Amino acid sequence: MTEDRPGFELPLLLLAGFRALIDRLHAELARQGHPDMRPVHGFAMQAVGLDGASATELGRRLGVSKQAAGKTVDRLEELGYVERVDDPVDGRRKLIRLTPRGVDALGRSAIIFDELRADWAAALGVDRLADLEDALRTAVGSTELRVDTVSWFGT
């Protein structure tokens, strides 16, 4: 009978699963030449996207202040994952764009996530994993990436 399971376990199990996947992702990224990548970097690079973003747009997408977004961009720029360039539409502002190193990290992340999913399929069985994913889609209602999740944990 599953009704006797305490409600607080569900979010903890979901978070533990997320954490297990992210920890394994970053261990593999480090092995593949991206040792300084952190989870917040992945969220920020997803928010920058292939078209780039201004610091204001990035802050809005991440759910943080322009200043907080700027600090993350500073670190990503130091690591070679993004660059600031003149905005071709508005020369008064800077556009944050992924560098080839940033695109490489995101591309590797996608491949690693596919491998991690395959590991879960091997551990749970293909059908059980598909059932889990379907159930989560039903419960969550959307699979849209919410890159502001990191800020949600903050305050």
Score class of each variant (00 low, 15 high):
M1Y: 10
M1N: 11
T2I: 14
E3A: 12
E3W: 10
R5I: 04
P6M: 08
G7D: 01
L13F: 12
L15K: 13
D23Y: 07
D23N: 06
R24H: 14
L25G: 03
H26Y: 08
L29K: 11
R31K: 10
P35K: 05
P35W: 04
D36H: 13
M37A: 15
R38M: 09
P39A: 01
V40W: 15
G42R: 14
A47H: 01
V48R: 11
G49H: 09
G49A: 07
A55G: 04
L58N: 03
R61Q: 04
L62M: 09
G63I: 00
V64R: 09
S65A: 02
K66R: 08
K66I: 03
K66P: 00
A69E: 11
G70N: 15
K71T: 09
T72G: 07
E77N: 15
E78C: 10
G80R: 09
Y81H: 09
V82A: 02
D87F: 03
V89E: 09
D90A: 13
D90S: 14
R92A: 14
L95S: 13
R97M: 08
R101M: 11
G102F: 01
G102E: 05
L106K: 03
R108H: 05
R108P: 00
R108D: 04
S109L: 12
S109A: 06
S109G: 12
A110E: 01
I112K: 05
F113A: 06
W120E: 15
A121D: 08
A123K: 13
L124E: 12
L124I: 06
G125I: 09
V126Y: 08
V126S: 13
V126R: 11
D127C: 10
L129D: 06
L129I: 00
D131M: 14
L132H: 11
E133I: 05
D134V: 11
T138A: 14
T138Y: 12
A139F: 14
A139S: 14
G141L: 12
T143W: 00
E144A: 14
R146D: 12
D148Q: 07
T149K: 10
V150E: 11
W152S: 09
W152C: 00
